[in-house]
């Protein structure tokens, strides 16, 4: 494992640029509902996970998120993600018909470490969603993604989503983060 700080400054600048460009591209596919294309960017062994966050006392804050073997909002492998994508194409997926309008922002992107082809990154995100005449949802949080270098560019090998909400203040989460 190479910690990002061990890379030379020019290597870091280049890596940062590549990583950010991939994140912007991938977010645009989701915003534009090009979900099949997005799915193609996912590695076969992707782990897509959003644990549940709870309000705890400051003393117990280490236990605010559920563990990977416990309940979660998302705990998907590639087959499950494919099912979510397919769901939107078979009809009668009412949560997204009429479709929601989404805008994704990523910022504070940091390369955490590099293990072989896998680049682990941390970032903050904002997903804004509006639908029909007056529905509005806004999700903020932190992500820990793993981008994997392949001959065809990056693949997404991990997306761990740590939402800032505890009770989800939305009628559903029919979108991908």
């Amino acid at each position: 494992m190479v910690a990002a700080v061990e890379l030379s400054i020019s290597e870091r600048v280049q890596l940062q640029f590549e990583v950010e460009q991939f994140l912007y591209f991938e977010a645009s596919l989701l915003d534009e509902r090009k979900l099949d294309e997005w799915l193609n960017l996912c590695a076969e062994d992707i782990h897509y996970w959003m644990p549940i966050r709870r309000t705890t006392t400051a003393k117990e804050v280490a236990r605010e998120f559920t563990a990977p073997d416990a309940m979660a909002f998302f705990n998907d492998n590639k087959a499950m993600l494919a099912l979510r994508v397919q769901r939107l194409s078979v009809g009668r997926a009412w949560a997204e018909d009429p479709p929601s309008r989404t805008r994704r922002f990523v910022s504070n992107v940091r390369v955490l470490d590099v293990v072989g082809d896998d680049i682990r990154i941390g970032l903050n995100f904002h997903l804004y969603r509006t639908r029909l005449d007056s529905e509005e949802d806004s999700w903020y949080g932190r992500r820990e993604d793993v981008l994997r270098r392949t001959p065809n560019g990056f693949n997404l090998a991990q997306r761990h989503i740590f939402l800032d909400q505890t009770v989800i203040l939305a009628q559903n989460m029919s979108n991908l983060f």
Binding site: M71, F73, F74, N75, D76, M80, L83, R92
Partner: peptide
């Protein structure tokens, strides 16, 4: 694991079934 997998993916706001209920 199987029971938790099913529970995670059917109901709840991101569940493949329950996403479509709330709006009705």
């Amino acid at each position: 694991r199987e029971a938790v997998f099913v529970a995670t993916h059917y109901f709840g706001p991101a569940g493949l079934l329950e996403q479509d209920d709330g709006e009705n």
